[in-house]
Design a protein around this nucleic acid. Structure first.
Lengths: 350, 350
DNA sequence: GTGAAAGCGCTAACAA
DNA sequence: TTGTTAGCGCTTTCAC
């Protein structure tokens, strides 16, 4: 590699060989008018010939914006975020924007650095999954005029635009579904992390139980110790959920259904149940969250709440685009997308 | 949002308020010597006070390099690539480099645009998973002196550095393992895509069979129709593999073992076998590829070939760093990392 | 329709 | 130790 640096051609090079001014070449290539058709053709031909590629740095410097969106994600190995990355990159690119990705690993320290990095890079806008409740990192971005939309987890204090899943509704639907299928006693298995998504799901669970007149005794909410900080490059691990589930199975009265915070937890639960000789769904129903690609193929197939990753990513990019173009935005400041329940075998009693 | 643009402070602002030259401020902040300790302190304090953030665009423009690595990935939703992204971003950042992510969606057209985008952005180096065998897109990058390392799939014609999995060895180990466990007749289930990784795995399979003196009759290699082009934002789907597996199960003589090209295919196979009333591993052994996070928790747990994502990502970044710093690189041009077989229940006959 | 000049914010010579 | 000058490659006035 390092091919003896065949230096990149610049506008000046083209101008020189064509005996034109840099300015003319610039305007010819950028499609502006006020230029002779013939000149334009000559410039284009020469640019093509030497393989001219504009220098974004220079362009950004003078324009003040880099035609780049920043994306701050906690963990790309979480399938939900992976799909978000994919959607956002594709949509951003289709509008001419590149994507600068920063991984925050659920650490507020990384988050600070990420925000600073995006600031340095003069991103035209940024899409952020905040780590937790800390607002400091992202406040700066907004205060220097970088349009910023939060996704998945809101930071209400900032007053930024937000697009996320209606987790309360998700929790409600999952729980109601279990109740409809005959569950009276339900346990929730959630990661032990102080973030709004989880709180909302639990709130939805409580609402469904209350509406059905069912009690929510102590121990109904079980927490799976988080390992995100140690294993930020990995998705959730079923292992911890498995262990928590085993603890649950030592109880004298077992629940009829378990609503898991994500499909990996459901997977850990499946094993614990199997080892315990319990059948899903006849002995216990299981509902997951996320509709991960494996879930439809588990045995039994997992009923789960599908999260609107694509929709969230698309809206986030569109919001940025609208804000940048100055279009008045009709959408609400906070936008919650309803997740859909995917009914499968794990709640289908025969 | 768009907080009435509190303009970012520049070196000049600081210089003005402190009655210094821009240059002095620059050197004070960048830690160069030849500057009075007191001056430096004053500059730092002022920078801190106004929340100075350097402008990367300007810096890159004069330096000629953006302290950014480009990463071209086919599909972030593939767990292997997701982990690669995570590893690469983290390691790059720890050395001060940002990550510009481009998603190529297994499309050569996207790939061309991605390459051009990285070129425009003056990335300091790039890490690329090539889509297929087309070399054109990435040749440019090298020819203008951007260090480029290919990962996962090589393009031998380019002569670039390459770090990937030793898929031949992976295929060999998976197959040998099945043979050791008593399999005589083995089928391989691979995606129908003309890429080297797949070819190599199949080659390893053949070698293992040959060494054991086992025949490889027609129909031993079954192809799962690819859907990557339609569903580039999704990981592999078990569905297609399931259908191919069902076709296989209509044969009069069934294989003793199936080696799947990835764990999702194995999952599709699990269902087909279950529906057919066949038990894993007693009726048929199954081996996957990738060691996806769900695989250890399937029933039975899936024996699979673990891919060295972290190692590949780390090495790729290190190669770039070494190349940029001009360090002579001791490593071979092409580096294959051995994958490890993770033995689990799906090949453990009782 | 085209060119000359200025400047985006920064760093790297070279002077003072 | 500090300031001056020049320039990275591009776009945007404003003359011609």
């Amino acid at each position: 590699m390092r091919m003896a640096g065949a230096r990149r051609h610049t506008l000046r090079d083209i101008a020189a060989t064509l005996n034109l001014s840099v300015n003319t070449v610039s305007r010819a290539l950028s499609g502006k008018d006020g230029i002779g058709e013939e000149t334009r053709a000559r410039v284009r031909a020469e640019a093509e010939r030497v393989g001219y590629v504009p220098n974004s740095m220079a362009r950004s410097l003078v324009l003040g914006s880099a035609m780049t969106f920043g994306l701050a994600i906690t963990n790309p190995s979480n399938p939900f975020y992976a799909q978000l990355i994919s959607t956002i990159e594709t949509r951003a690119r289709s509008h001419g924007y590149s994507l600068l990705l920063t991984v925050t690993e659920e650490s507020e320290e990384h988050e600070m650095r990420a925000a600073e990095s995006l600031l340095r890079s003069s991103v035209s806008g940024s899409i952020v999954v905040p780590v937790q409740s800390g607002t400091e990192a992202w406040r700066r971005l907004g205060s220097v005029g970088v349009p910023t939309v939060l996704i998945n987890r809101d930071l209400p204090d900032l007053g930024y635009r937000f697009v996320g899943t209606d987790n309360e509704l998700g929790g409600y639907r999952a729980t109601s579904h279990a109740i409809e299928r005959g569950a009276r006693s339900i346990v929730v298995l959630e990661e032990d992390l102080p973030i709004t998504t989880i709180d909302h799901r639990i709130a939805g669970f409580r609402r469904a139980m209350a509406e059905a007149g069912l009690p929510v005794p102590r121990g109904s909410i079980m927490r799976v110790p988080t390992r995100r900080h140690e294993q930020a490059a990995l998705p959730w691990q079923p292992q911890q959920a498995y262990q928590v589930a085993r603890r649950m199975l030592r109880r004298t009265r077992l629940p009829d259904a378990v609503v898991a915070g994500n499909d990996y937890f459901a997977l850990g639960l499946y094993r614990a149940l199997e080892e315990h000789g319990l059948k899903v769904p006849d002995d216990m129903m299981v509902i997951g969250f996320g509709d991960h690609p494996f879930s439809a193929f588990l045995s039994p197939p997992l009923t789960t709440v599908r999260l609107p990753a694509e929709e969230i990513g698309t809206i986030a990019v569109d919001l940025l685009l609208e804000e940048i173009s100055g279009t008045p935005i009709a959408r609400p400041l906070k936008q919650l997308i309803a997740p859909t329940l995917v009914e499968r075998g794990s709640t289908q009693r025969s």
